[in-house]
Simulated scan of single mutants.
Amino acid sequence: MADSLDLINRDPNNINNHLQCCFEDVLAEPEGTHSIDCVWKLSYSCFNMWKSCCYKLSTILCGICIAAEWGCDFAAASFYHIWCFTPMFKMLDINCGCMKKMYTQCVACCIEPCCIACGQLFHHFKK
């Protein structure tokens, strides 16, 4: 975990690049279809102001609770992996290794001699 929080670059791993959305990405007037300049400027200002205001209000009302919930979810995932899944996989590795050894011994003792005998029988056939 980082010792200091970067308040400038809040997405250092670029995981939310798909959310970059500016006024020009949403509203555009093609050549020959322009509104009055003051309407276009006020639309630009309103878009950015409301986008910022609504986002900040949402984070004030819900952000801390949602972050707490995600923290609990990731803590639970870590707990299950550390205390349940990893030991279970280790147990499967041990038990499957034992079963593999037993299966290999059974094949070597029971099936391999028959295969060798059949191979010796057919070995004597020549063109």
Rank of each mutant, 00 (worst) to 15 (best):
S58Y: 11
Y55W: 11
C109W: 10
F89Y: 08
E29L: 13
D11F: 00
G71W: 01
L19F: 10
L57P: 03
D3T: 08
T59D: 06
G71M: 02
I66H: 05
Y44K: 15
K90C: 09
K51I: 02
E69R: 15
K90H: 14
Q120K: 10
L121Y: 02
C106S: 13
K101E: 03
S43L: 03
I15A: 08
E112T: 09
F122A: 10
H18K: 12
M1T: 10
C110G: 11
C72L: 06
L61C: 12
A76L: 14
F85H: 06
F79S: 10
V107S: 10
D93M: 02
I36T: 05
C118H: 13
S52C: 08
F79W: 14
N17W: 05
N95W: 05
M49T: 09
F122S: 09
F125N: 03
S52D: 06
Y80G: 07
F125H: 08
H34I: 10
C114R: 08
D25C: 01
K100A: 03
I94R: 00
Y103G: 06
E29A: 09
I8L: 05
A76V: 14
D3S: 07
N9Q: 01
K56I: 00
D73P: 04
W83T: 06
G71V: 02
L121T: 03
C96Q: 11
A108V: 04
V107G: 03
S45E: 07
W50F: 14
D25S: 01
K127R: 15
L57E: 04
C62P: 02
P113H: 05
A77L: 07
Q120D: 14
C21K: 12
N17K: 12
A117I: 04
K127D: 04
L7Q: 01
Q120H: 12
L92K: 10
L7E: 00
G97S: 00
L57N: 01
A68F: 04
I8V: 09
G63E: 00
C65L: 15
E112V: 11
A68V: 11
G71T: 02
H81G: 05
C96I: 15
V107D: 08
P30W: 05
V107C: 09
L61A: 13
C115R: 12
A67P: 02
C114N: 07
C22N: 14
C96A: 15
P12E: 01
A28V: 07
A68G: 11
L42W: 07
V26F: 04
C53P: 00
F79G: 06
I66C: 07
T86Q: 10
A2P: 04
N95E: 08
T86L: 08
K41P: 02
T86S: 10
M102W: 15
F125D: 00
I66Y: 05
L42M: 15
I111V: 14
C38W: 09
H123L: 14
F23G: 04
L61P: 01
T86H: 05
C54E: 06
L92R: 05
C84R: 07
D37H: 12
C98F: 07
W50G: 04
I94K: 03
E24P: 05
K127T: 06
E31C: 07
M49Y: 11
P113A: 03
A76I: 12
V39G: 13
C53M: 08
Q120C: 12
C22D: 13
K101C: 05
I15W: 01
Q20T: 06
D73Q: 13
K101G: 03
R10A: 00
S78P: 02
C65M: 12
A67S: 06
C118T: 15
F23K: 02
T86V: 14
K41W: 06
